[in-house]
Write a protein that binds this DNA or RNA. Structure first.
Lengths: 245, 245
DNA sequence: CAGTGGTCTAGACCACTAT
DNA sequence: TAGTGGTCTAGACCACTGA
């Protein structure tokens, strides 16, 4: 680990304009990407950079803080700031409501409730949601279509212990997801992406062959420490979640 | 859309301690989660909140800015800050190197190069990476194992136009990913998650039946506008990517 | 214990945009 | 055009941690 060269190429300040933290951030990023400061290098301190850029330390601080969040550098008090050996890569996906996903793509959204049943929560569900045995649960299956083509199959369990009002809610015209977002908008979520084989039910709803690979999202939702709902979303053939970073 | 109640329950300031932006953030979050401020409500302005909390406006500003990033509120100049009708949900996944993924789970990492071939890039690859026809490319397949069990199958193409030094690099002992991270640490990436059926090659390497569902990550990497590499990572049976938010 | 980042403040000016 | 958030500054004190 060598330290960075003194390297004072071009004080970015051009006109009489005031330096923004964005300018600082962009310049630091440039130096890292172009290896002016190589991985492992020690970056000059905030005071020094503030002098170089002709701005307040707080401005440099904000720039560096954001670069830290983005995984380019690593900061430690007293030790200083170093360019990460391996940039920390993180993918961010927005999780929209199906309706928004479909209408956003310019297609017509259609929702259908396929089945609805109140029953004792099966053991696997109790284990999964930390419910007491024989808790009651609402089991729903639904289909979301885009321009008449099946897009997403939803298999959902709602704990009637945590959400008794779900038993009388109307899921004929609106999906349970939308109902839940209104009933409990701010909750804690665990989400998983996985590939699994289409069960006969899923295959029938989505027009697939049983056993065909299905991209699946599984989401568990909690509020105030209590499990509310578990849902498996199975997507149409060839679906992918994509992002850039 | 009603406006939030005046609602001044408990000025958080307890002891003579200085208020942190974390305190402000936590309190605002609490009020939103517990519906003191309902979805759609207008939140008091920064000046007013600063008075309530007995801190500087900058402190409130930082708290609110972070809550904005986290998707709880929506801010517009002049219009003020509103609680989002639907919290903006976003899932963040860390993308580690396979080696870190495996050793991090306490297992022993093993790497094997299965095949290596220099050839003219096939048309589909040229299209995908915006290469000129007949560009040369390096095609590699590798297997990453955890405690001797196949964990991830890697099918990678590297553009020899953009990275000629890849032709002489040694991929016998270290995976191409690690080589790339050193050669071109800071690049632009497009990543997709999908489910696909195991091809015979994938199935053989991972010990699956052909046609079985495979969780797959596809990643394209660019630097300075030029495509460097395209990789498909196929995971062991039942693999899932999980995160909380 | 000394150096670096982390945070707060009080004040100022600016940019956007609803009205 | 006025009100709200967005950002910068200069200065201060603090917290962590490497030497």
């Amino acid at each position: 680990m060598t330290d960075a060269q003194p390297s004072r190429p071009i004080p970015v300040a051009a006109g009489g304009e005031k330096i923004s933290f964005r300018d600082v951030k962009a310049e630091i990023r440039r130096r890292i990407e172009q290896r002016v400061w190589a991985p492992g290098d020690l970056v000059p301190g905030e005071v020094e950079l503030a002098e170089e850029f002709g701005c307040a330390r707080a401005t440099v601080n904000r720039a560096m803080r954001e670069l830290t969040e983005e995984g380019l550098v690593d900061r430690k008090r007293k030790a200083g700031t170093r360019v990460r050996m391996t940039p920390l890569r993180q993918a961010r996906f927005e999780i929209p409501l199906v309706r928004a996903e479909i209408t956003g793509a310019g297609a017509k959204y259609r929702y259908a409730l396929l089945s609805r049943e109140v029953q004792a929560a099966p053991p696997w569900l109790c284990a999964r949601l930390a419910l007491r045995a024989d808790s009651r649960a609402l089991h729903l299956t639904c289909l979301h279509s885009a321009d008449g083509v099946p897009y997403q199959y939803e298999d959902r369990w709602i704990s009637l212990v945590a959400l008794p009002q779900a038993e009388t809610a109307d899921f004929q015209t609106r999906g349970p997801n939308e109902w839940l977002v209104e009933a409990v908008p701010y909750s804690e979520v665990e989400i998983s992406f996985l590939a699994c084989a289409a069960t006969p039910g899923v295959a029938a709803a989505l027009g697939l062959e049983p056993g065909e690979p299905v991209f699946t999202v599984e989401r568990t939702t909690w509020w105030a420490g209590a499990a509310l709902t578990l849902v498996r979303l199975s997507y149409e053939r060839g679906h992918r979640m994509t992002t850039r970073y």
